[in-house]
């Protein structure tokens, strides 16, 4: 039963989505089915959020309680979860600082702490790109040298100063890079990967719908 029921659910749901793709979504019958499934997804998503909150609090609390290594970070995690969640969950009628609208504690914490921290994480990507590019572009082999030359040309083409520099030699160079490197070799390889991935995804979906693939449930 533990295997049969999920398999049946996967089969029926998969089949419904495949069939509705080939039917007119304007019709109330098909549109209704899609809407129902979407509603279920939102409801299940809401319930599972609680699962995540419980998991993070339980794991962090265990570390704090047993004074495990780096327990101080876990304590900060617990405090952060509570400080963000509690004012956001309290009813707005109690105070203008509660709830999640503009001017609340939640809003202030999000705009002044969470958003800048996330932006900082994203901004560090520039440094990581530089270090990864340095390693990838070291001309140790013929392939790496081709990669280095190609990447240099593309980078020159992508920035106005570089384009001006290329124009010194010939005004046709930027157009040639666009046509042959980006629109030719690069696009052909990308399309090859995308076609392969799409077929792989479709084959895996079919294996799941037909119950051949059960590894995602921990079954062989």
């Amino acid at each position: 039963m533990r295997t049969t029921l999920p398999l049946a659910v996967a089969f029926i749901t998969g089949l419904v989505f495949v069939i509705t793709f080939f039917l007119n979504e304007e019709s109330p019958l098909v549109g209704g089915v899609s809407k129902q499934l979407l509603d279920w997804l939102i409801i299940i998503g809401g319930f599972t959020l609680l699962l995540g909150v419980v998991s993070i609090l339980r794991v962090s609390w265990q570390s704090v309680e047993r004074r495990k290594e780096d327990w101080i970070y876990k304590l900060i995690t617990i405090l952060s979860v509570l400080v963000m969640a509690i004012p956001g969950l309290l009813p707005e009628s109690w105070s203008s600082l509660f709830g999640r609208q503009e001017g609340t504690i939640y809003d202030w914490l999000f705009l002044n702490l969470q958003a800048p921290m996330m932006a900082t994480m994203f901004a560090t990507l520039a440094f990581y790109i530089a270090s990864a590019a340095y390693r990838a572009f070291r001309a140790r082999t013929a392939e790496a040298t081709i990669l280095l030359v190609t990447a240099t040309l593309v980078m020159l083409w992508r920035v106005p100063m570089g384009e001006a520099f290329l124009n010194l030699f010939s005004e046709e160079i930027p157009g040639l890079i666009n046509t042959y490197i980006m629109g030719g070799v690069n696009l052909a390889v990308q399309r090859g990967i995308i076609i392969g991935a799409a077929l792989g995804a479709a084959a895996m979906s079919l294996r799941i719908i037909l119950g051949i693939e059960r590894t995602y449930m921990g079954k062989s």
């Binding site: 990967i193 995308i194 392969g196 991935a197 077929l199 792989g200 995804a201 084959a203 895996m204 079919l206 294996r207 051949i212 693939e213 590894t215 995602y216 062989s220």
Partner: peptide
């Protein structure tokens, strides 16, 4: 890369029934 990710479970299982799907691909 790409399809290799989806093929991994079948590849690692070594089960003929799963590998049939890869040949279909």
């Amino acid at each position: 890369m790409g399809e290799e990710l989806y093929a991994a479970s079948a590849y690692l299982s070594h089960e003929p029934i799963m590998m049939g799907g890869l040949k279909g691909q």
